[in-house]
């Protein structure tokens, strides 16, 4: 018998379509030939991972249909099998794969739609946290505000796309029930994906507000982040919108690192 790591490596290679001889020798036939058992296992792997991806990217699937999605998923699974035993982590490279493989060329907004769905998935599984309460921000000494570091909520993700990808998302989720059209020429969007409580929310942000949150996420103090966001920024309106969306993490009750 080969050593276990060798057997595992050749098993994985065979599942990905490589040589089967070393693995077949280790499989007991018992009524069903070893090669068929391996084929059944390989088929189950592809189908299960395809189902897993369909659960993470329902709008992509709804947009392009089940057959095209299955073809994309099969190609992705062959190129990028899971690296973790936890399927929740599977699919992070799906959007770049759609770009790189050229499979999404007929639908140019498809990879950004996949990015939005991955951001939704990440927000869904992010750590729970009550968002920063406006009153807690109001309680900060005004003299400390310019140097204040506002951290994004653990679930918050920013996505910028040259397409109206939120409208495409809604159409894809509706699937065959979608009765309308999406105008791809409607222009780009900056989206905030965040889960302030139990529900994941997708909101459009003003580009300057998105730049403000991105600068905060990079650890910049408020006065500097506001300057970074550009002259188009209405700081009061942007902060009010971000606070209402639950985009900021609460201040730590004892760790005062947000203060200068």
């Amino acid at each position: 018998m080969p050593a276990l790591p060798d057997l595992q490596h050749s098993f994985m290679a065979a599942l990905r379509g490589g040589a089967e001889d070393a693995v077949l020798a280790a499989i007991a036939g018992d009524g069903i030939p070893a090669a068929e058992r391996l084929a059944i296992h390989r088929n189950n792997m592809v189908l299960t991972l395809t189902d897993s991806l369909a659960g993470v990217f329902p709008a992509v699937r709804g947009l392009v249909g089940a057959d095209f999605f299955a073809a994309c998923a099969a190609a992705f699974i062959a190129a990028h099998p899971p690296r973790s035993g936890t399927l929740i982590r599977y699919g992070d490279r799906f959007a770049p794969f759609l770009d790189r493989s050229g499979m999404a060329a007929p639908v140019p907004c498809l990879s950004d739609l996949a990015r939005l769905e991955w951001a939704w998935h990440q927000a869904f599984h992010a750590a729970d946290a009550a968002p920063l309460a406006p009153a807690d921000l109001g309680a900060i000494d005004p003299g400390d505000l310019p140097a204040l570091v506002l951290r994004p909520h653990p679930s918050a993700r920013l996505l910028s796309s040259p397409w109206p990808v939120d409208a495409v998302w809604a159409a894809g989720l509706a699937g065959d029930a979608f009765d309308g059209t999406v105008d791809l020429d409607a222009g780009g969007v900056d989206l905030l994906v965040v889960r302030p409580a139990l529900e994941v929310e997708v909101r459009r942000l003003d580009p300057a507000a998105a730049a403000l949150l991105a600068a905060c996420a990079a650890g910049r103090p408020l006065a500097e982040a506001a300057a970074t966001a550009g002259t188009g920024l209405d700081l009061a309106a942007a902060l009010a919108g971000l606070l209402a969306a639950g985009a900021f993490a609460p201040f730590h009750p004892t760790n005062q690192e947000h203060l200068p």
């Binding site: 057959d67 062959a78 979608f178 020429d185």
Partner: peptide
């Protein structure tokens, strides 16, 4: 034991993407 993969590459998606206009 059939392979889950489609034999032929499906070059054109069918579905809601027909309702995307412009772009």
């Amino acid at each position: 034991k059939a392979d889950g993969q489609k034999d032929a590459f499906i070059a054109l998606p069918k579905g809601v993407c027909e309702k995307l206009v412009g772009g």
